[in-house]
Computed example of a mutant assay.
Amino acid sequence: MTLVRPARPDELPALVEHPGDPERNAATRAYLTQLLDSACTRPEWCLVAAEDDGRLTGSVVLWTLPGHEVPLAVVLFEAPEHSPETASALLDAAAAKAGELGAKELEHVVDSPAQAPQFQRNPERRGELLRDAGFEVARDGRRFGFRTPAASGETGETGELPADDPRLAFRSLAELGPEPFVAVLAELLADTADARLAADVRQHGARRAAELLFEETAGLKHEPEWWELGYDADGTVAVISLPAENPGFPVIGFVGVAPAHRGKGYATSVVIRGTRVLVAAGAREIRGDCDAANVAMAKAFERAGYVNFADRLEFARAL
Rank of each mutant, 00 (worst) to 15 (best):
P22D: 01
P9F: 13
T155V: 14
N25M: 02
A292R: 06
R208P: 10
R125E: 03
V182M: 14
K264M: 13
L188R: 06
R276P: 06
E78P: 10
V255K: 03
A304S: 10
F301M: 04
V201M: 08
R167N: 14
E11N: 09
E211M: 05
H222A: 11
G134A: 12
P22W: 02
F249R: 00
R171T: 12
A218W: 00
G141C: 09
R202L: 14
T192L: 03
R5D: 01
R42I: 05
A96D: 12
A138F: 09
R142D: 06
T148W: 08
F146M: 10
I252L: 14
G265L: 14
L91M: 11
V70G: 07
A95L: 06
E128H: 13
E44F: 11
A151N: 08
T217H: 13
T158C: 12
F254Y: 04
L213F: 03
G256R: 01
E211W: 08
E179R: 10
T33M: 13
D191M: 09
S83E: 15
R139A: 06
V61E: 00
K221A: 04
A296N: 07
P250S: 15
H261N: 04
H68Y: 14
L65V: 06
F301H: 10
H261P: 04
A87K: 00
P247M: 04
V270T: 13
A300V: 02
A218H: 12
E314A: 11
N122K: 10
P117Q: 13
K104T: 01
E17W: 12
N246P: 07
D311V: 00
T155A: 09
Y306K: 07
A199M: 12
L56C: 07
